[in-house]
Design a protein around this nucleic acid. Structure first.
Lengths: 352, 352
DNA sequence: CTCCGGTTTGCATGCGAATGCAATACTGCC
DNA sequence: GGCAGTATTGCATTCGCATGCAAACCGGAG
C-alpha cells in the first residue's frame, strides 16, 4: 500500500531527472572524466583500483555512456539503416528479425525505415544520411542519383534481393530466375502445355525477375502462348487472377505459375472453391518464397524457398566488412533457392 | 563506357570523403555557423537573402544537418526504441510497419530491438538507454527493476499488448479475455460439451491471458473438464497438439480453442489429414488474431482479430504525448477484437 | 534627421564523451 | 638506492550543432 502511493508520487512529479554524465561519475569517484571514459572502453588502460572506484560510482548514479555523444566524437554511430517496404516485411518478417539479431551480436543497432511502396524512397535517403548511420541495407531499389548521394557520403550500401546490373554495387539475393526456370522445366517435363503466369506488383523488381525467368524458359521450350495476369502479391489478388485466367483462356490451364506463394494459395482456393477443380490433377499451381503457409497441408505448394538465414547473414557480414574496410571492392552474392516439391503441382520429379 | 570507368575509380579510392559541416557551409556562403543552423530549423528567423545563399551553399556541398550532434545539444534524439520478440514480429509483421510509418510522420525514427525470446530483455534495456531514445514501445514484459531503470532515466514507456496490473504504466492492448469469452460462449451455445485448449508458449503473457479467459468462461458455464495441451504458436505444434488431444481424450473433442490462428490451422489440418474428420461437422476449431491465413478458404477460421491499426496508432500517439508532456499520468487503453465468424466452427451465431 | 521597436545576424558557449600528449606513478633490474 | 621502461592518469581539445545574448540593421513615425 505504502509502496503503491510512493510509486504514484514518483511518477507524477519526477520530471525526467537529469541523466548522470561521465563528469558526475568522475567527481564522485574522485578521478578525471577521461578516466571514466577509459573504464567504459574495451582496450583502455586503467588500474584495478580505479576501475573499481569508477564502476561503483557509476553504479550508484545509474550512469551509462551516452551513445550519441560517443558517436559524435568517434564518427561511428554503431547504427545501420535497414530500408524495407511494407510488402517485404509482410511476406518475410523473418528478414528483419534476422538482420537485427545478427547486427546486435556485433554491437550494431538497426534504425528501421519502412516504405509504403518501394518508390517512396526519396525522403528516406535524407533521413538515413542525417542519422549518420555506418551503413545501409536496402530491400528497395535506389536510382543512380540516390545511390550516388549515399556513396558520396561514404556510407556502404548492400542491396537485399535487388541489384543494379549496370553498376558496381554490393548485393545479396536469391536467384529468382534460376528458381523459375527449374519450376518451368519441371512442369513442362510433366507434360503441361497451357501455361499462365500471375505476376506481382509492377514496382517489384523481384516479381519482374521471376516473371521474366519463367517466360524465358518457356520460350526456350517453345511454349510461346502464355497468358500473364497481374496481381499484388496478396491472397485476394491470387483468387482474382485465377478467375481471370479461367475467363481469358476460356478453360482450365495446365499450370499456373504465381510470382509468390500467397498468390499461389489464392489460385488454389479459387480453383477448388469456385471452379470445383482438383489440384494438382486438373491444374498444377506453383509459387515462390517458401513462406510458412506454403507448407500447410491444405496447400502443400511446390515452390522455391529463399534461404533467408544465409542471405541475411551474408548481408550483415558484407556490410560490416565494408564499414571496417571502406576500400573493399563491390561483391554480388547470389543464392540458389531450395527446391520444394509439394502436392500442388504435377512435376517431373514428383515421384522421386 | 567512360562513365563506367569513372565509377569504378570513384568507388575504389574515395575513402569516405569527409562530410560537410555547418561551418563549411557557413564559410562558403559567407555567413556565420549559427546562421546555417537557423536556416535548417523550423521557426528560426532568417532573411530571404541569407536563406538562399545558405541553401545554395549547402546544396553545393551536399550538406545535411547531423542528427547525432543535434540530438546531443537538444537532448532529443528523435528516436524511439521498439522492442519486439521474434514471435511477435512473425505473427504480426504489420505492427512493426505501422509503428514505424506512424512515427515517421511525426519526424521520429525507430531503433529496433528484437528478442529471440521475451525473457532476453536484460541486455536490451542497457542498449536502449545508451542510445538516448526519447521513448520506448515494448511488446515484451519488463520486470519491476527493469521498468524502474527506464523510468528513472525519464523515458516514457508504452506496453504493447502487455500490461502490469500492479503498476501504473501506459499500455495499449487487445482484450484477449473478452475475445476468448465470446468464442467460448458461442461454442457452448452451439451445444459443444467437450473442450480442449491449445495454449501458447509459457513466456507469452498473451497466451496466458487467452487461456485464462477461455478457462474462466468455461468454468462459469460449468464446463469443468477441459484438457489443456501446450504449443509454441507454430503450425507444427498445432498439429502435434491436436494429435495429443485425440490421444489423451480418447476420442474427438467437440471444440478446440487454440491460442492463436496458426495453431488453429495446424489443428484443422491434423483433424482432416490424419484423423479424417470434417471441420466443423465433427469438430469445431477456433483461433485468435485474425492473421492473413485465417481467411484462406481452406480454413476460414472463426477467430477474433486484433485491431492492429488502431492499436498501433494509439501506442504512437500515447508515446508522443508523453514525450512532449513528461508529467502526463499513465493510461491503459484496451481495444476489443473484431469478432469473425468463419466456417471452422459451429457457433451459435453461425447462421446470422 | 533622429529615435524607437522589431528583425537579422554573429559571438561565445555547451551538450557528453574520446583521445593525443605530457605528467606522474609504478615496475623490475643492476 | 637509482634508473630506464612501462603502465596510469589528467589536461585540454575536439566532434557538429543549437541557442542566449548583444550588436547591427531596417523601416517608419515624429
Amino acid at each position: 500500500m505504502a509502496n503503491h502511493v510512493k510509486l504514484a508520487k514518483g511518477n507524477a512529479d519526477r520530471p525526467a531527472r537529469k541523466r548522470a554524465t561521465s563528469y558526475d561519475v568522475a567527481e564522485l569517484a574522485g578521478v578525471s572524466q577521461s578516466a571514466v571514459s577509459r573504464v567504459f572502453q574495451a582496450g583502455a588502460s586503467a588500474s584495478k583500483d580505479m576501475r573499481d572506484r569508477v564502476l561503483s560510482a557509476a553504479n550508484k548514479l545509474g550512469y551509462r555512456p551516452n551513445a550519441i555523444a560517443r558517436g559524435l566524437i568517434t564518427q561511428r554511430s554503431n547504427m545501420v539503416a535497414v530500408v524495407i517496404s511494407r510488402q517485404t516485411n509482410l511476406y518475410y518478417p523473418e528478414v528483419l528479425v534476422q538482420l537485427t539479431q545478427r547486427f546486435s551480436e556485433h554491437g550494431i543497432r538497426v534504425l528501421l525505415f519502412t516504405l509504403e511502396h518501394e518508390r517512396d524512397i526519396d525522403g528516406v535517403i535524407e533521413q538515413v544520411l542525417q542519422y549518420q548511420v555506418d551503413g545501409v541495407i536496402t530491400a528497395a531499389i535506389l536510382n543512380d542519383a540516390q545511390l550516388d548521394t549515399v556513396e558520396n557520403a561514404g556510407i556502404p550500401v548492400i542491396f537485399y534481393n535487388r541489384t543494379l546490373p549496370e553498376r558496381l554495387v554490393n548485393s545479396v539475393r536469391c536467384d529468382q530466375e534460376e528458381g523459375e526456370r527449374w519450376l518451368v522445366s519441371q512442369l513442362a517435363a510433366a507434360g503441361h502445355k497451357r501455361f499462365a503466369i500471375v505476376s506481382g506488383p509492377d514496382d517489384s523488381s523481384v516479381s519482374m525477375e521471376r516473371t521474366q525467368g519463367a517466360l524465358q524458359k518457356l520460350r526456350e521450350l517453345s511454349i510461346a502462348d502464355v497468358l500473364i495476369v497481374s496481381g499484388d502479391y496478396g491472397y485476394a489478388s491470387g483468387r482474382a487472377a485465377f478467375s481471370e485466367i479461367m475467363q481469358r483462356m476460356g478453360g482450365v490451364p495446365d499450370a499456373v505459375i504465381a510470382a509468390n506463394d500467397v498468390m499461389a494459395i489464392g489460385c488454389v482456393d479459387e480453383a477448388r472453391e469456385t471452379n470445383y477443380l482438383r489440384v494438382p490433377e486438373d491444374v498444377s499451381i506453383v509459387g515462390f518464397d517458401g513462406v510458412g503457409p506454403a507448407r500447410y497441408a491444405a496447400y502443400d505448394l511446390s515452390t522455391v524457398r529463399q534461404p533467408v538465414g544465409r542471405m541475411s547473414e551474408a548481408a550483415v557480414s558484407m556490410l560490416i566488412e565494408r564499414i571496417e574496410s571502406p576500400g573493399l571492392s563491390p561483391e554480388k552474392r547470389v543464392f540458389s533457392g531450395d527446391r520444394i516439391i509439394g502436392g500442388s503441382a504435377l512435376l517431373a520429379d514428383s515421384n522421386s
